[in-house]
Design a protein around this nucleic acid. Structure first.
Lengths: 190, 190
DNA sequence: CCCTTATGATATACAATATATCATATTATA
DNA sequence: TATAATATGATATATTGTATATCATAAGGG
């Protein structure tokens, strides 16, 4: 197992941190590559030795967070208490609000949110059994579940988290999880 | 009432049509202002006599469609059949799929979708009476209703509309309208 | 019909991307 | 620790796209 050159790791870390800080400051679109390299105190040309463009760096940064969140959401036993899962989500978001705000917020690129929805839907479909007689196709239900979860998180973050994670978990259950599960999936109790 | 100079109207129309065509072809971000003016067969500098930048032109174009859609959704009597409203939405989308695909699709900018959600939520709140004892705040319910409607439309469009508007209307009712209304609003029958 | 104004064509300043080169410093590893 | 490999910094440069200014011409309004 090769440990990559420390210089590379250092550079990429500095670039990632610089990008996150800058998105929070002025939004993704307004950032130039020179902004990033100056903030990271890295030579301008060095950026292109690691990433083709801004988007590639962002994807790299985002993957870490996305995998972490998906792990929390789907890394556990299926058939778990839906309310408990909701609390877990909003606790995680609260604990990582700086980064999540950047990645899911309106200041980040839309493509990222689409990517998260894509990966989340696949997980939902993998872990839930569709109800055969439902007029709501499982694919749509999964997409709805994930997309509206993200929308709810976005609302919460953009309004500076005015309700507790517990409260949001309950809202999440009532507005999203319960209706989706009952109308499109078979609920298997533990 | 002043009728604006015909030349202005003509130029802005040409720019709008060019933008829509180009977004469909290669996505919003990839478009340059020179692309637009060449497609519209308009002088490059002329663009800036009408719009500050690409985004301003897009907003101008989008407002027409957004107002039309909101008119359909909320211009009618409240307490209407939810299923009927759902069908209206998906019929409208089907009839204007080229433009809607551009405006709500992944190739357009995220800010537009946020704007639609914002305006839609305000309308929902204005036309529905919140249930006082609900753990789900009306503001969140309204946001959820609109945001997940748009997500559903996006799914439908991006999958080339595999189900009929009637079927989508039923899915819409079951997955979104019914749960949202029952958990956060007072349903008043006609 | 005449005056106003929108447009086209063109030039130019400027900002940002993307690549190339070469000397230097850092790292891996034998 | 010595040596070879390579990542980095600094710099130059080509390219692309934005944004503004100017002036002659054409189109439209009253």
């Amino acid at each position: 197992m090769h440990v990559r050159d420390r210089r590379v790791k250092r550079t990429q870390n500095l670039l990632a941190q610089a990008l996150l800080a800058l998105i929070a400051e002025k939004g993704y679109d307004a950032i130039t590559i020179r902004d990033i390299t100056e903030r990271a105190d890295i030579g301008y040309a060095t950026f292109f030795r690691h990433y083709r463009d801004k988007d590639e760096l962002l994807r790299d940064v985002a993957d870490v967070v996305i995998n972490e969140l998906l792990e929390i959401l789907f890394g556990q036993q299926p058939g778990q208490e839906p309310a408990a899962v909701g609390q877990l989500i909003f606790r995680y978001v609260a604990d990582h609000s700086a980064v999540v705000r950047v990645l899911l917020g309106s200041r980040g690129p839309a493509s990222l949110v689409q990517h998260v929805i894509q990966r989340g839907s696949e997980n939902v479909l993998r872990q839930n059994k569709p109800r055969p007689d439902s007029p709501v196709p499982a694919e749509i239900a999964a997409h709805h579940l994930v997309a509206s979860s993200i929308a709810l998180i976005q609302w919460w973050i953009e309004h500076d988290m005015p309700y507790s994670p517990e409260h949001m978990g309950e809202i999440y259950r009532q507005l999203i999880v319960q209706p989706t599960l009952t109308s499109a999936f078979i609920i298997d109790p533990a």
